[in-house]
Design a protein around this nucleic acid. Structure first.
Lengths: 147, 147
DNA sequence: AATGAAATTGTATAAAT
DNA sequence: ATTTATACAATTTCATT
């Protein structure tokens, strides 16, 4: 899809605050609200916009620990893990990657005990490496047009 | 903050689609729209809700590559990198982590050449390890209440 | 802390350019 | 593809419980 300047402005608004009204976006980008509405709908239909999320502070709702867990699946366990991975509430994001390791996951946990129990579940599928998150230095940075 | 059952239901709705109206959420959870509005506002003020994002497909807008880059900062380069990291448009997320390595980043890139140029910028600050993302197996999974 | 009602604002649709 | 007009829906504010 060719994303023109106006669509980029709309995407910028939506990335900053997805809950803004179309009328408010229209005011910021200089078109009417039906124009905004139609362009957003088209970008949704074409898969440019994949959804609207709410960012929740894991800490505030009781998840005291965040970790990055990298996993190298055991022989024959990659496919079973691909099925299982969707069922873990702890895994917020999981990427399949190239290299020695097969998966990198962003996980949220209540405490150390929860981490231990969670790793115990993973080691059925592969060898894991756990890195505890100290801080979120760059958070869901907005995507910009490619020059 | 103590998040009661009703707030959890509201958060569930907002996580599924942040652009739903308060009236629509109210219908789903069984309260009036001013009640939804007030509870959302309180959760925003208390930092439980940190914002509303739009999920954009990097591929559709011309970022053909996604990578996970892990970095071990050189002596004396950790603090300078903490300043610099916010300025890179390629870095969508960056976590500071425990262990041998200091940062793990999720980056979006146009192509291989862009990746090469980007890594050239990073190696001023530290030693990097790049893992190319093959697929996004679990995508921004919704946070659930802790039992 | 939630509701109901009134005023304001936003959305959706259709007709026109 | 966008605007304007219009009918309908949602939001905000506030009095009430």
């Amino acid at each position: 899809m060719n994303i023109d300047n106006l669509n980029w402005k709309i995407l910028k608004c939506l990335q900053q605050n997805a809950r803004q009204s179309n009328a408010e976006i229209g005011r910021q980008v200089g078109v009417s609200s039906p124009a905004v509405s139609e362009r957003i709908k088209k970008m949704e239909d074409l898969g440019v916009i994949q959804g609207y999320n709410t960012l929740i502070s894991p800490f505030e709702i009781g998840y005291q620990l965040k970790a990055i867990i990298t996993m190298r699946a055991f022989m024959g366990k990659l496919k079973p893990f691909l099925e299982k991975v969707k069922t873990y509430d702890e895994i917020v994001n999981c990427y399949r990657i190239t290299g020695d390791e097969n998966f990198v996951m962003e996980v949220v946990l209540k405490n150390q005990k929860h981490l231990e129990l969670f790793i115990d579940q993973l080691i059925v599928y592969g060898e894991t490496k756990t890195q505890i998150v100290l801080s979120h230095v760059v958070k869901q940075k907005e995507l910009k047009p490619i020059i």
